[in-house]
Design a protein around this nucleic acid. Structure first.
Lengths: 337, 337
DNA sequence: TTGTACGCGTTATCAG
DNA sequence: CTGATAACGCGTACAA
């Protein structure tokens, strides 16, 4: 293991003090051009990279921000993450990724771990979490931004959209198609305001037309293909069976389509299925999914930008709310006659 | 911004020296039980977390390992990453994730960034990279493990499988079905030994039966749905057109199925399609994909374990090679008569 | 078994 | 514009 060159080595090689070298790297304008040139040459020659720990210790900043997402396995958060990462690396900031498996206790533990690593800020998904977690955040005084949600009554800085309204709009689309026996496969709603909002939105739309959304027509299932397939089979065993299934996300919708096939039903002729999120999977399945388009990239971009603003000590620029859009593809059609 | 509690604060609260507190955390056995208990209580009460930078500086270790994957957007690496992360966090190690977009220059830059952050080890995907990158690694003396590949002539520690052999076996399966006009949509092979190996394997199988694999029957495309759909349309325009398409991964296979549908062909009756990797997508599409199963989780597990061994200074335990397995599902059938 | 004291690499505050 | 020098929080010889 080679010993890495230190500030001192560079200073020695360039014939200046460590302070000057440090300045060349952090505030080049404060150094005369010829000196700076000499120093930078020495830096290049030695292949010097500042030691992260030393820097963190001395400056109390890490140029690192942490994000805790529920999971990496489903592709839901991948694109947003990538956007986050790109936006941040433009500012020389590194992204530290942790996962909570949709478990608030794990999320709190991950936040603690991230804080221990001295992250300058945090990005979290959604706003439903125990008060202790918010207490931890507030006590620490760390800047953070919530993604994927927008609720008017949540005073935290956030970049997201109204899951409830989007789901309601989708349900209305389904009803407008003429469906009157509508079921929903929802994500697990415990500590998940996105899943909750989507259920509420669908329920509101149904109730406005005199329909209700209760078990057995409402099933909660993890955001996984197999669980959704199983749930769909249960729904299809009902009599009369539903003519449309609204799913909590695209993965679940893909699972529903699969169950329909297994049951010998063809979508959308015998059964309509709609999803949510508009991930790549939506156009891979047959029929392609009618779904709610979510602006993954722009959410990531804007969340990064907002967090950097907060870290810089500026005022929270007000929450950002995106509009969603229903993408009509083949999986939604009129009910069978 | 609250000031975080330091070792000194804990020491003060527990009425001991900082050295004792440090020992309680790093080598509990060296401290008498009653003392330790008192200290740990203080730790808990103050919510103390060791300062990452300080620790890194003093111990020259970060308990962090870095991984550079090509991309997060396709789900290919997600499961392996999750496994890595879980295996590592059991050992109190944090995973730093960076992406290269399949670009060797970007990979080198990310490695440099990771080294600057003082990672204790690295995980890299595949073994095809410029000699300068290996030179960088060797000069630094950092332990690293390669994943997803196994080539007998590569002397680096690795945990993977033989992409060439797996692809060859798959191609033979296709040929055994009776296909004689076989095309391939490969991943971009530049600096990607997995993609290269898969092409070579398929080509070898075809050549053994007197067939060849050259353009226009061989097309390279990014591992994305749309590109593969486009490539498939080009293949379907050939005359005579291929009766089977072997794809570089499952995403491409899903794209091929989509193109077939668009062209009014039904799989596997009119066209057989096979994939590689066995990600969740494989069972979401219709027909479900016949594909090569890759042991994502075990690869992640073992790579983590091997790297930790290397970091601990033990001998490289020899490369780990996994067997792959062809999973027969619906997308491969006999050629149309 | 516990405490003292130094050094890790960097930034930031002062003088000059 | 540049150079000394004092922190920053922790691990670890060494001493007690």
């Amino acid at each position: 293991m080679l010993k890495l060159p230190t500030l001192d080595d560079v200073a020695h090689a360039a014939g200046v003090s460590t302070a000057t070298v440090s300045r060349c790297l952090n505030a080049p304008d404060m150094v005369r051009a010829p000196t700076r040139e000499r120093v930078l040459r020495a830096v290049a020659e030695l292949g010097y990279t500042p030691h992260f720990g030393g820097r963190a210790l001395a400056s109390n900043r890490t140029n690192t921000i942490g994000v805790v997402i529920p999971t990496m396995e489903s592709a839901i958060f991948a694109r947003g993450l990538q956007a986050l990462q790109e936006a941040l690396s433009d500012s020389g900031v590194t992204l530290l990724i942790a996962t909570s498996h949709y478990d608030p206790a794990r999320e709190a533990a991950q936040i603690r771990a991230l804080l221990g690593r001295g992250v300058d800020g945090l990005i979290l998904i959604g706003n439903a979490r125990p008060p202790e977690t918010y207490a931890l955040l507030d006590a620490h005084g760390i800047p953070f931004v919530l993604m994927w949600s927008h609720q008017a009554d949540c005073p935290r800085p956030s970049v997201g959209f109204d899951n409830r309204a989007a789901a309601r709009a989708m349900a209305e689309k389904v009803l407008d198609m003429g469906h009157s026996r509508v079921a929903m496969i929802a994500g697990v709603t415990a500590w998940n305001d996105r899943a909750q909002g989507r259920v509420e939105g669908v329920r509101a739309a149904l109730q406005a037309r005199g329909l209700s959304l209760e078990p057995p027509l409402l099933i909660e299932a993890p955001y996984l293909l197999d669980d959704s397939t199983k749930a769909t089979h249960a729904l299809l065993a009902l009599s009369p069976r539903p003519t449309a299934i609204i799913c909590g996300n695209d993965v679940q919708a893909a699972g529903a389509l699969r169950a329909a096939r297994e049951a010998g039903l063809s979508a959308p002729k015998d059964l309509s299925v709609v999803g949510f999120d508009d991930i790549e999977l939506a156009i891979a399945v047959d029929p392609p999914l009618t779904t709610v388009h979510v602006p993954h990239r722009r959410m990531g971009d804007d969340a990064a930008r907002m967090l950097l603003t907060l870290i810089a000590g500026h005022k929270p620029p007000g929450n950002i709310v995106f509009e969603t859009e229903i993408i009509m593809r083949g999986s939604l059609g009129p009910p069978p006659t």
